[in-house]
């Protein structure tokens, strides 16, 4: 670890125990929350802009059934790519996403314990919960909450979800989103995310950095997202995914309206797949946006189209769950 000095006071920072590696950070968070009853899920395998959009959040927060889940979610934001040249901005970053439904009364205290669990001594840091409300217009979701600030840096987004897919939630849930890269950079005290140690070889002690693992990926995706992605084809893909999602939603509607539709027919209906198609649209929208192909006027319309799909899926999901609950 580099030792750092602060000029104005000339106090030398104490030597501290080696901070967690990037992967250890994830292990600890997973371990901590697993011990508190969370299901640990694997990252979702369709492109998403945030952990919120993975079905483990988007669908599970709907309806009355309690659920606790945690997962790391690689999150793609094409417009945020910087060709690997900016030390703090990434096309793809990793969120550790946690859903507590319903939120326990001591959810904030649990969260603080999780910080202690990853080696943050709260008595040596400044911690604030500052208002930050979240809204995801493409998925018809919003909530109120905070950005948790540690020594002037946002380390977690803490949201009490109120609505999702255009539906009021009851019970509501708490969503905690730890930004793993910035948390690791903060704890390892490095100025560039690419210098974060991802792993140590236990035999040689050699470090594999975040840059070793991901730098070329950031560069290449930036090139594609900003320069190569074919706008016309992106539009075509978007329209095609949207059409398929809409066709499925229409079929669901027909089943719903058909009095003779059986419980099995309803249970078999592929809402998850419909949702994936909506997610595809969302990612294509982000790509088009990065290419500068969407005017401000069109943007509103596009958001509305994706939102329509998301709202349709949310309603269908709730109806399907209700059906399952009443038939069992």
């Amino acid at each position: 670890m580099p030792s750092s000095t602060v000029s104005s006071s000339a106090v030398v920072l104490p030597a501290k125990p080696a901070a967690l590696t990037f992967q250890e950070l994830l292990f600890r968070l997973q371990g901590f929350w697993a011990e508190r009853g969370c299901v640990l899920q694997q990252p979702y395998d369709v492109e998403v802009g945030a952990g919120t959009m993975a079905p483990e959040t988007f669908l599970r927060v709907l309806g009355p059934k309690p659920y606790k889940v945690g997962y790391a979610q690689p999150s793609r934001r094409p417009a945020d790519g910087r060709y690997g040249e900016n030390p703090n901005r990434l096309f793809r970053h990793t969120q550790f996403q946690l859903i507590l439904k319903p939120p326990p009364v001591n959810v904030q205290e649990l969260y603080l314990e999780s910080l202690e669990a990853i080696g943050i001594d709260l008595s040596k840091h400044d911690l604030k919960f500052e208002e930050d409300n979240w809204e995801g217009p493409t998925v018809g979701a919003w909530g109120v909450g905070w950005q948790v600030m540690m020594d002037g840096m946002e380390i977690t987004q803490f949201t009490y979800f109120q609505q999702c897919g255009g539906l009021d939630l009851d019970p509501i849930c708490a969503e905690l989103t730890y930004g793993l890269e910035r948390l690791a950079a903060f704890m390892q005290d490095v100025d560039s995310v690419y210098d974060v140690v991802w792993a140590h070889d236990p035999e040689t002690g050699a470090a594999v950095t975040y840059g070793d693992v991901r730098l070329s990926e950031e560069l290449q995706y930036s090139v594609y997202n900003f320069e190569d992605a074919d706008v016309d084809r992106l539009w075509a893909h978007f329209n095609s995914y949207e059409a398929e999602a809409q066709a499925l939603l229409d079929r669901w509607k027909a089943i719903q309206e058909n009095e003779k539709a059986t419980a099995v027919e309803k249970r078999r209906f592929p809402i998850m797949s419909t949702y994936e198609l909506a997610l595809k649209c969302s990612n294509l929208f982000n790509l088009l946006d990065a290419r500068g192909a969407i005017s401000v006027t069109e943007r509103v319309g596009m958001i509305g189209r994706i939102r329509n799909l998301a709202v349709g899926v949310a309603k269908a999901y709730v109806a399907q769950q209700n059906g399952a609950a009443s038939s069992s």
Binding site: S8, S9, V11, S123, K124, H125, D126, M153, D189
Partner: peptide
Amino acid sequence: LNTEVDDEGRAIIRHGNARVLRA
């Protein structure tokens, strides 16, 4: 800050804030 810390804590917090500002 919303806390009171010892010299070590002050150094850490000052350093952390400076780091964010620098970025």
